[in-house]
Nucleic acid binder design. Structure first.
Lengths: 151, 151
DNA sequence: TAAAATTAAGTTGCGTACAATGTAATTGCT
DNA sequence: AGCAATTACATTGTACGCAACTTAATTTTA
């Protein structure tokens, strides 16, 4: 119900360039675009790179665990992991304790890729042309936002 | 080239939870997830909603102009606009001045949808559970980031 | 003014995101 | 033990994003 007295507010609310969400969305798209040429050298997409980061930290994870870390579900992860397996970067085994659970494990090739990956975040940091404290601020605010929206 | 003395820094750089980009990416995904149930009532996706916002502002735009405003290309927009046309929200004509140019125009149904759309941003704002100044801060920082990455 | 270059949009193909649904293994309950 | 509920993952289908390429119209320029 929009009564006359707030029509100006309504107008502002519906302008694209006033939308926080749109800024977030565009900045996130721009970020993955910035990563693309760097990740091409590793033959990884941005999401594949994030999945590999989890594996470089944990060596071995279930699909569920990976989904919790990346905030994604099996509908996204299953095909992704099959592609990583096809590239020889991970193996997709089963847990002996629970046959339902897929255990994703780094292969030697997957482990080796970490060395080349180290330079990527540095170069991106550079491309943002923004001071570290502002970048940390965005990160902190985004983390808070994600937390609030997820609860 | 990663020499031994910065191996600790490298380790930190490759941890998922230290990645600004990942926070941005996850927050943007969470935002579109938050919009989804609200936009379902309008039978719009998030991107379709953004395209409609441009049209509610401008009445009529070329694909090029729309792409500039949304930071997207014809590969994304052409199928999107066909879907909006199929829903009867826009018409896809040609410019008489330049036959190459598609002129996307709001239909009456498209115009009418604006009334229902007004409530969406308010509800989202509410769901973020964050003070307005922090939201404005994210927006400003994201806009800066996008600008830097695009230049 | 005719060929070359540019521009606007469309097409194809790949890889996400995610809802909805399915399947098989495990757990909980009685 | 036996059956219902839950859990973990897979599958299907829709809609983005975007690179690479194509087509057709317009502009440039020699």
């Amino acid at each position: 119900m929009s009564s006359g007295h707030n029509s100006k507010k309504n107008k502002e609310l519906l302008q694209l360039d006033n939308q926080l969400c749109f800024s977030l969305y565009s900045a996130a798209n721009a970020m993955t675009r910035a990563y693309r040429p760097l990740l091409d050298a590793l033959d990884l997409t941005y999401l594949q790179y994030m999945a590999m980061m989890v594996l470089w930290e944990e060596q071995s994870v279930s699909v569920k665990r990976l989904g919790e870390r990346l905030h994604l579900d099996s509908g996204t992860l299953t095909p992704l992991l099959k592609r990583l397996e096809a590239k020889g970067l991970v193996s997709r085994g089963r847990s002996p304790d629970d046959e339902r659970v897929r255990v994703i494990t780094l292969t030697d090739a997957g482990q080796a890729l970490k060395i080349q990956a180290v330079e990527v975040p540095e170069q991106i940091l550079c491309q943002t042309c923004m001071p570290l404290d502002e970048l940390k601020q965005i990160k902190q605010l985004c983390d808070q936002l994600l937390k609030n929206l997820s609860s």
